[in-house]
């Protein structure tokens, strides 16, 4: 297992004169392996964005040690290897999508031709290749999110730090983004994503970190966190009387029947199926 991110007693405190100090992150020990998708969950103000900003080198920790790919966050050698997608709007709103990616490529010191080829690939993949000279400020939230992901992926990073990567995306866009993140993880990248979309996190993440008021409250795989001793039996073709008989049999064998319900698929799963059908048709 290759360690991509490691923190020891990482803490961040915001102090301002006349106001009580805010402990955005309380001493936090984390070891995150490469090749996994890790979700960071928690209510607003729980420290998710602060954690990502520390790992991106944008926020200095008040206390503790942090290494990303063996280096201090923000060191020049990580400029290409670590990508950060902040939650807000993109800067330089008067540029077109291609101009924005060209600037990102230039800052990452990619050769012009290489940068243009990568940009074209991600624009096509994220369905932004027909935006022409349209300025970013006229993009919808979802388009900006997809372009932000394209910018984050331009340098082929080994660590992707994503703050709300699917906020404002339509279900097709979310499915596309999740597919891409899976591919990146399969290629060996660590994807660390803060999100409020629990269904998406459940679907895509190998592991979840739950923060509350800056402190780590839970950590583990989805299966570990949602583990239960209950079992579900899904059947089809029985009437109500037969179902009642099944339940009775379960009781007679010492079991407890928690509920009998008609299972229903999630809308998100429906959209995914529709998206796959659409992709298959084109």
């Amino acid at each position: 297992m290759t360690l991509a991110v490691s923190t020891r007693q990482l803490a961040v405190t915001f102090a301002s004169r006349g106001n009580p100090a805010v402990h955005a992150l309380q001493p936090l020990d984390l070891d995150l392996a490469a090749g996994r998708i890790v979700g960071v969950l928690g209510p607003n103000g729980s420290g998710k964005t602060t954690l990502l900003r520390v790992l991106a080198g944008l926020q200095a920790p008040t206390h503790g040690d942090v290494t990303v790919l063996g280096h201090a966050p923000g060191s020049a050698s990580l400029r290409r290897q670590v990508a950060f997608q902040p939650a807000g709007a993109l800067p330089l709103g008067v540029l077109s999508a291609r101009e924005f990616l060209a600037w990102v490529g230039a800052e990452l010191r990619l050769a012009n031709a290489d940068s243009d080829a990568r940009a074209e690939h991600w624009l096509r993949r994220l369905e932004l290749d027909r935006t022409g000279r349209r300025q970013l400020r006229t993009f919808s939230t979802g388009m900006q999110k997809r372009l932000a992901l394209a910018a984050a992926l331009l340098g082929d990073p080994a660590v992707l730090l994503l703050d709300e990567p699917t906020a404002g995306l339509d279900p097709f866009g979310s499915a596309l983004v999740m597919d891409i993140l899976r591919e990146r993880a399969a290629a060996g990248a660590l994807v660390l994503m803060a999100s409020h979309h629990l269904l998406e996190v459940e679907e895509i993440c190998d592991e979840v970190i739950v923060l509350y008021e800056g402190a780590l409250r839970a950590r583990g795989t989805i299966d570990e966190l949602l583990a239960s001793d209950a079992h579900a039996l899904v059947v089809r073709g029985l009437d109500d009387a037969a179902l009642a008989g099944l339940a009775e049999t379960a009781r007679q064998r010492g079991g407890e029947v928690l509920r009998i319900e008609r299972p229903r698929d999630h809308l998100f799963a429906l959209f995914r199926r529709l998206a796959q059908r659409r992709d298959g048709g084109t």
């Binding site: 900003r53 991106a56 080198g57 944008l58 923000g74 400029r79 950060f84 902040p86 807000g88 709007a89 993109l90 800067p91 330089l92 709103g93 008067v94 600037w103 990102v104 800052e107 990452l108 910018a151």
Partner: peptide, 21 residues
């Protein structure tokens, strides 16, 4: 007005701070 890091708290300045040398 064009370059985001001239003033504090501008939209998207995290991108620029991280990428610009």
């Amino acid at each position: 007005l064009f370059w985001p890091t001239f003033a504090r708290g501008r939209e998207g300045s995290d991108w620029v701070v991280r990428l610009a040398r």
